[in-house]
Amino acid sequence: MSIDAHGIRKRFGAFTALDGVDLHVPQGKLVAVLGPSGSGKTTLLRMIAGLEFPDPGSGRILFHGDDVTDIPAGRRRVGFVFQHYALFRHMSVLENIAFGLRVRRRRDRPSSAAILERAHRLLELVQLEGLAGRFPSQLSGGQRQRVALARALAVEPKVLLLDEPFGALDARVRKELRRWLRRFHDDIQLTTIFVTHDQEEALEIADEVVILNQGRVEQVGTPQQVYDNPATPFVYQFLGNVNVLRAPAAAPHAVGGVAAAVQEGLIYVRPHDIELAPHDAGGPGLSAIVRHLHAAGPHARLLLEQVQTREQVEVEVSRAELSGLNLRVNDLVRMRVRQVRSFDEDFAI
């Protein structure tokens, strides 16, 4: 089922949570709503679920083209998974999953045996067969997450909404679980929206990313589109590390390979888009002093200080490249920029 939101506004007192948001989620896709805390992403998700309502007269929410703005949560057929899972703590895992079926009106309710059978099948689906009788407090974070997912799926929702689904897990489980979620989504093909503040997570598993900032949509696109062609400075800075430099410092003759006519304003350079060369190599580039060197991990990170402007520049190079240069702190080095980005209108590459 496709989901559309048009012109959604929401204020909480003086705070504007959503300021005219439009959203389109195509049928069967996995879409990430990405933004820093306070960007309104959870409010948007709760609104799609029917747990929150847009300010009167501001906007509409459509499911498969039908207006559901005024329909309460219980009749929207959405599966909602909270960041902290919100499992019913006094019920066993199996009863948690069965809940949505047990509260149905008598004439829509399957028999108790059928309910339990369905709950067992869902438990299998999320690979927790052996844990039916456990209580939530006896499960690990990743297991709770999957029980919450199974419980949401029990009512056969038409859309799955996940609020920071991996936010409360440790780093290793988080990685495992997000790959699992991607495969799981490929199997069940249910329209899914998940909210996250973690750009790596969004870029890794989503079909499409919606970037939200201060209650507005900054950009929508596939992970590659938004990463390669950020529409705004905010998106550029939010998706990965970036150096923001005053343009004259990186004028054409200086930045080397890039022929750019930047007069003023700011340019944006990713740390891995900077190339280092021995200082006496000549040719294009800028002189910089190595201020800090951090070589643990797959890539080496350096903090350079540009000689002319004293601007600090973060650079990421491979370990091999670094050892070839044989650099130490306070050494001079030549840096060349492979790719820059400016959001000034008259800037052209």
């Binding site: 679920a49 747990l51 949560a73 219980g74 909270f82 919100a86 949505g100 509260v103 419980r151 949401a152």
Partner: peptide, 13 residues
């Protein structure tokens, strides 16, 4: 209120 909200999305009155 998360548990209550969950119950509501699952169709409980």
């Amino acid at each position: 209120t998360d548990e209550e909200s969950t119950a509501v999305t699952l169709g409980a009155n």
